[in-house]
């Protein structure tokens, strides 16, 4: 198998497993589940088109996240603003399926709302580092920004989350 074929196979076979995380990434990026559907699908399509450029020994999730990030910022974000509705994120009620309103779920929703209330640049960095567990250097590569910007975004996000998550914490205790 030549290297191009191998790359194509790795991408085709790997995308489905990455998809739920890619979709979640797009929810945080775009703030809305309908837009997340569009961006996640567009990112997969772009990944399949460009599969020969993927280095099979590298990480597929980072590569696809980066594609989604670029698609959103370069092509789809301005359209979302133009079509109205702005880019402010919606409530978690519309993000997760209705579930029994147990205390655990209420708390989880409040935490989601707190993160989604952050500016777009901060919340996507929070997702990559706090949720996905990427190192600062890896998050910087995905977002195509200097590592110093990752640090300043997370510092600002931490200060805001500290305040935003207080009521959530109180309610859970």
């Amino acid at each position: 198998m030549n290297p191009a074929e191998k790359s194509r196979d790795v991408v085709r076979e790997g995308l489905e497993a990455v998809y739920p995380r890619l979709w979640r990434y797009c929810v945080v990026l775009t703030g809305r589940r309908d837009r997340a559907d569009d961006v996640a699908q567009a990112a997969c399509l772009r990944a399949l088109e460009k599969a020969v450029l993927f280095a099979p020994e590298s990480q597929l999730d980072r590569w696809v996240f980066r594609i989604a990030q670029r698609l959103w910022l370069n092509e789809l974000r301005a359209d979302a603003v133009r079509r109205g509705g702005g880019i402010a994120p919606i409530d978690s009620v519309d993000l997760i399926d209705p579930t029994p309103a147990s205390e655990t779920n209420i708390f989880a929703r409040q935490v989601l709302d707190s993160v989604m209330a952050l500016p777009e640049a901060q919340r996507i960095t929070v997702l990559l580092v706090f949720v996905e567990g990427f190192r600062y250097r890896e998050a910087a590569e995905i977002l195509d920004i200097p590592i110093g910007t990752v640090m300043s975004r997370l510092t600002a996000a931490r200060a805001k989350l500290k305040v935003l998550m207080q009521p959530a914490k109180g309610a859970a205790e």
């Binding site: 995308l15 998809y19 699908q41 989880a108 989601l112 949720v131 510092t155």
Partner: peptide, 27 residues
């Protein structure tokens, strides 16, 4: 600057279940 990262990770874990299936065939 200390936040409950574990709570954030857990809340977002729940979001994975809400993901639609990848439209593999169409793509």
């Amino acid at each position: 600057l200390t936040v409950d990262k574990q709570a954030i990770a857990e809340a977002f874990e729940g979001l994975l279940g809400a993901s639609p299936h990848m439209p593999t065939e169409a793509l």
